[in-house]
Simulated scan of single mutants.
Amino acid sequence: MLSDRLQGKVALVTGGTSGIGAGTVERLAREGAKVVFTGRNADAGKEVADRSGATFVQHTVDEPSDWPELMARIAKDHGRLDIAFANAGSEKGDSNVEDISIEGWNGVIGVNQTGVMLTVQNAIRAMKNNPDGPTGSIIVNSSMNAHRAMGNFLAYSVSKAAVVALAKSAAIHCGNQGYKIRVNAILPGVVETAMISNLIESSEDPAATRAAYAGMSPLKRMANVDEVAAFVAYLGSDEASFISGADLVIDGATTAGMMGL
């Protein structure tokens, strides 16, 4: 049985209509938080909202003009913000360093890097105005590829490394300002989202493809979505009150070192 450790807290999740984002929306809500989540897909947003009881707002994470209305709504409806999960991400148009177009580069960097910056920036501004003073927890969804770049996903790899530095910079800033606002980055390994499951099932040899994904980790499996969502919930809770400025891997030891022969 889940705890109610997030009771009374208000959370924002970007990119909450699928995958890790959707799983986190549901997990935070089950632990007692009032959750507002964003995304572009209204139909998927409605499905997640119906399942979780959370509030969906259609929103473009890397569009600065979309942010004031969203934050005003959270302030009006809830009067505070305690948790922000900067989760929205994209790989669309990515490629290797020789072949990527400037449009592909700008698109991925826009969502994965500028979108994260805008999420963190607006979350801090909102958390500063909490009735009990500047307090809260911001979690940035990076990737193990921040440490192990991919040759065929240049912009994704670069952006995921960059947002680790962004989280650390924001954490230092908040501490220096005297805010009780924590900022951390999580670095998931391969997570069996619906997208990954579909890729496996549509491959020529699903068993071999599944084994390849699972074999990336010394634990010989992929993470499930709720394992990552549980990590976010922990970092958003008061139990993690002295964790800030960290980059925390959740990858089954994939990036710990070489597995050997």
Rank of each mutant, 00 (worst) to 15 (best):
D4V: 08
R5V: 12
L6F: 03
G8D: 10
G8W: 03
V10R: 00
G21W: 02
T24V: 14
T24R: 15
V25Y: 01
A33H: 02
V36P: 03
E47T: 14
D50M: 00
D50L: 00
S52F: 02
F56K: 06
V61F: 03
P68I: 01
P68T: 01
P68L: 03
I74A: 11
K76Y: 05
D77A: 14
A86E: 01
A88T: 12
N96D: 15
V97E: 06
N106M: 12
V108E: 08
I109A: 15
N112R: 05
T114R: 15
Q121A: 05
N122R: 04
R125Q: 11
N129C: 14
N130K: 00
T135P: 05
I138F: 09
A146Y: 09
L154V: 05
A155F: 07
Y156R: 04
S157F: 11
V158S: 08
V158H: 06
A165G: 14
A165H: 14
L166P: 00
A167E: 07
A170H: 09
A170M: 13
G175I: 09
Q177V: 04
N184Y: 05
V191P: 01
S197R: 15
I200Y: 11
E201Q: 14
S203D: 11
S203T: 09
A211G: 13
R221E: 08
R221Y: 08
A223S: 11
A223D: 06
A223N: 08
V228M: 13
V228G: 10
L235M: 02
S244P: 09
L248R: 10
A253I: 12
T254D: 07
G260C: 06
